[in-house]
Design a protein around this nucleic acid. Sequence first.
DNA 1: TCCAATTATTGAACGCGTTCAAAAAGCTCA
DNA 2: TGAGCTTTTTGAACGCGTTCAATAATTGGA
Lengths: 248, 248
Amino acid sequence: MGTLSQPTPLNQPRTGKGQQTKAKLLRTALDAFAEDGYQAASMRAIASRAGVSLSHAYYYFGSKEDIVLELLIALRAEQFEICSAQLDEGNTLEANIRIVFDASVQVMEKYHDFGPSFLKVLLSRDLENSELTQIEMSLWESVVAGARPLPPLAIRRDLPRFLWLLSRQIFSTWAYDSSPNQRRSRALMRNIAPVIGKFAILCRLPVVRSLFEDVLSLMDSRAGSIQERTTSTVESASEHRSSRAKAS
Amino acid sequence: MGTLSQPTPLNQPRTGKGQQTKAKLLRTALDAFAEDGYQAASMRAIASRAGVSLSHAYYYFGSKEDIVLELLIALRAEQFEICSAQLDEGNTLEANIRIVFDASVQVMEKYHDFGPSFLKVLLSRDLENSELTQIEMSLWESVVAGARPLPPLAIRRDLPRFLWLLSRQIFSTWAYDSSPNQRRSRALMRNIAPVIGKFAILCRLPVVRSLFEDVLSLMDSRAGSIQERTTSTVESASEHRSSRAKAS
DNA sequence: TCCAATTATTGAACGCGTTCAAAAAGCTCA
DNA sequence: TGAGCTTTTTGAACGCGTTCAATAATTGGA
């Protein structure tokens, strides 16, 4: 482990044959994951099923986690296919949030035993500009852009990222949810949508909107997100309290 | 892995010699953790350092995770020692929150490479009534009870649990924080205190207080927490919207 | 064509957490 | 004392993810 590592810049297949092997390995791995689950689909099992040696699998994939990430991407893409059309039908924000979560559960439930592994991948890697993050973000952007009525202008720009960060918290609940059939996290997803809807509406009030901005910049781990913001309410609430009091 | 397991109901030492062995094993393990870090302090290393066979370590501790949990408990107890006195000096809520987080960092920073392991223990086990949870909860109760001015009565009862749940989210950020010297999560802890302080004051407004209750019952995974509550704002926001509209 | 550099592939090993059957030691009571 | 029980302790093994030096296959230029 040592340092938390991104996918080691690894041997990309340079010949046609190599690409074929890598593709077959990936296909086989995803099949094995689906059929046998995380435990049983060991690197040895995957390699032998693909007809290559164990060590050769590591020639194309630096770790088992790398393959798990590929699975996660595939599942998110599937989720995108399922629900992106539904998000453009003029439903409420609340309804759109539900659509995304429902599709997530539908796609993921078979893979619940990958939860801990998924979560580790999400937490330990910098995926800020990865394919995975792009799919997820475009989903939440559609949720907001397709909602009728549109959320208050003041938060419209930041709401997608807020929803994305929130969805990751929910994912971490789901990942380790040991209640039967993930009852608990399903309930969480069901109940959170109306609260967000309510919250979004309340953001018309300056007090609540300022809270929204505070919470968002706290959740957001992008370095420098505070400086970029035109008015940082977090800073003003802490260091600049006096100047703020004067201003108001 | 299979099922997410509590600490296997394990052989408790029945003789004096047994207790001695188990105690020595634990002491050795915590030393090895402190000196060598998570990776290098393998079960083999711990066992041999304690002068027992590898398999014998498993007679008293069902897994390495069990020992990691003991470490986590020891660290939380240390944190409690450091800051419990400071929480009774009539500081603001914001200041008290800072005190707890500062002590947490002070105690934990040496063990940052245990972060992923700590987090897994916290997420995969039901620790609802464990020693660990009791220590943590009593800290947050002191934060609230010792704050001057006291937070609004309406949220005073629930605020400790809210802070506890929040602190777990922050912990998960810390656990995988790869920024130099955990810069990012330190900033998070620094910035979150004033926001909570502000939020607590705003909870005097009914609109904000209702948001607080919504958020709390969403975060809280205790089964049946919704029914127990006198007024469930989550439910009223979703299923009972019509009856709510009538009431208001 | 043949050689050298590159790419693809392998077998064997390492250390890890964990399991288990069996041996050793300790205890209780005739 | 010693037989039968429980508690403690061990050695050997399993399968896992991962690494690495090695061999085989392929490619490109003289």
